[in-house]
Amino acid sequence: MFTRIAVSALFAGSAAGLIASLLQLIFVQPVLLHAELYESGELVHFGGEAISAVQDLGGIEVMRDALSIAFTIMIYTAYAFILIAAIAYSEETGNKVDARQGIIWGVAGFIAVHLAPGFSLAPEVPGVAAADVYARQIWWFPTVIAAAVAMWLIAFGKNWMMWGLACILLIAPHLIGAPEPSVFEGPVPTEIGALFAARAFGVGLAAWVLTGFFAGYFWHKEGLREGEVAAS
C-alpha cells in the first residue's frame, strides 16, 4: 500500500510539478520580477513622473530558475502524497479513482490550498504590505485544513448537516479574518499586484488539475500492476 502511494505520488508530483514550474516561469515570474523593481526602489510608483509599464526584466537566471523548478516539483510531490493518501482512504470505503476522477480531486485540492486561503490572503507579489508572516502562517494552516475537510464533506457527506458543516468550515476563517497589515505601504502598482494574484490562481488551478489527473492515473495504474484493482 505504501509503495503504491509513494510511487504514484512521486510520478504524479514530478510530472505536474515540472509543468507547473514552467507555467510559473512563463506567466508568474515576469510579473514577480517587475514587482521587485518597485520593491527594491529601482522604480518609484507615483514618484512624480509616469513610469513605463514595459520594463526590461532580464532573461533567464539559471540558478534562480533552476531552484524554482526544483522547489515547485517538491511542493507538488508533497501535495500528491497528501492527495493520494486521501484517494487511498476514499477507496477503503468503496470509492474508485482513475485519471478522470483525479481531475475533480485536483480541483478540490486547488480550492483547499489556493482559493480558500487566497480569498482573504491573496497571493502576494513581493513588496506589498502584509501582516507578520508568522501570524499569516498561523491563519493559513487551519484555513487550508478546514477547507480540505469541507471538500471531503461536500464530496462524501450524505446529509444536509454534513454539507452545512462544510459551509461553516469554508466561511468561518474569513469571518474570523486573516491577519492584515495595519497600514498600506506597498510600493508596487496595484495593476501588478492584481495581475500577479490572477496569474498565481490560474497557474495554481492548472497545476492542481494536472496533479489530480496524474495522481488518479498513476494510482490506478499502480493498482493494476499490484493486482489491487481488477482490470476492466
Binding site: L32, R64, T77, Q137, A200, F201
Partner: peptide, 27 residues
Amino acid sequence: AIFVVGHVQAGALHDAAHDVRHATGFP
C-alpha cells in the same frame, strides 16, 4: 514537506524557495 519547503523562514531556505512561495500563494 509542505511545511519545510513552503513555510520555514530560515534564511537560505527562504531565499531558495522565494519565488515559488510567492507564486504558490504561501505567506
